[in-house]
Write a protein that binds this DNA or RNA. Structure first.
Length: 270
DNA sequence: ACAAATACCTGTAAGC
DNA sequence: TGCTTACAGGTATTTG
């Protein structure tokens, strides 16, 4: 579910609420939520530590602890982090709770794809590519990293090892803004198109962060306080099959690219 | 080395 | 009103 704008929104909320605060208690009830180590090990390494800072790497949230360890959270498809008081009723599928003196962060995840784990600083078990917000993308950079392969463009844009943070919604929005077909093989994308893609990635994701992310009708994504985002109102193609393209008025079509639902304008994207 | 398919889960909406 | 099927924001692993 959550892509860069949604994860970044939650990160900013966490900075406001928990940065500088001490973790008083950790509870793990989900059977799959902590799966890279024992829940006991995670609790021992997290309990009693302060949260020095909260960073984002691609779609991972990284809570830097005073011990030097990092508490890593990935929401995957259906995970949420929610701020509550201990006596608030717990939502179904609440799998972990990190308690502070002034409230608690709950990890809620119906599909249980999401996870929590703790690693030492510098031991992050994943590699992430350039961040469109932090690093800025260039057409030349995208062409060099992606242009020699034969994958569909959309699949390449969602490769977290190359470009960090783009998922199914924003890949479609970025391709539409750039005027490029989602199923174009990357070795056929022109330099001009790579330039437009780099620019579109920056502008779409920046605007989506400003709008605090996209919430679809099932409201799976909400921020730390349960509030939906607003960027879905600015979607030009995603989940808009049959509705007019904002640029040309032709109906938006739906297809499948890389086994994922894909929305596009048959006229604007070449 | 690369690309495509599959697996991991539960909830919801659509279709009959 | 059920019942069945398709589909959902992601990524690691397996297969070809």
């Amino acid at each position: 579910m959550p892509e860069l704008p949604e994860v970044e929104t939650v990160r900013r909320d966490l900075v406001r609420v928990v940065a500088g605060h001490r973790i008083e208690a950790v509870e793990v009830t989900g059977r799959r939520t902590v799966r890279r180590q024992s829940p006991q090990d995670l609790k021992e390494r997290v309990g009693g530590m302060s949260v020095d800072s909260v960073r984002r790497a691609s779609k991972y949230l990284l809570l830097d602890l005073s011990s030097g360890d990092v508490l890593v959270v990935h929401l995957r498809m259906s995970g949420q982090l929610r701020w509550h008081q201990p006596d608030d009723e717990r939502a179904a599928h609440t799998h972990a709770v990190v308690g502070f003196g002034h409230g608690e962060v709950r990890f809620v995840d119906p599909r249980t794809f999401g996870e929590l784990f703790v690693v030492g600083a510098g031991e992050l078990p994943f590699r992430v590519g350039a961040d469109p917000l932090d690093d800025g993308l260039t057409g030349a950079g995208l062409a060099a990293a992606l242009g020699h392969r034969r994958r569909p463009l959309k699949v390449a844009l969602m490769d977290q090892q190359i470009v960090a943070g783009i998922g199914n919604i924003y890949a479609d929005e970025i391709c539409h803004r750039a005027g490029v077909r989602t199923d174009r093989r990357t070795d056929t994308v022109t330099a001009r198109q790579w330039g437009r893609l780099a620019e579109a990635a920056g502008s779409v994701l920046t605007a989506a962060v400003a709008a605090r992310g996209s919430s679809l009708r099932d409201a799976q994504y909400v921020d730390l306080f349960g509030r939906p985002g607003a960027y879905q109102q600015e979607h030009r193609v995603y989940a808009r099959e049959g509705l007019p393209c904002p640029a040309c008025g032709r109906p938006i079509r739906r297809g499948v690219v890389g086994q994922r639902s894909t929305f596009f304008c048959p006229r604007c994207q070449k």
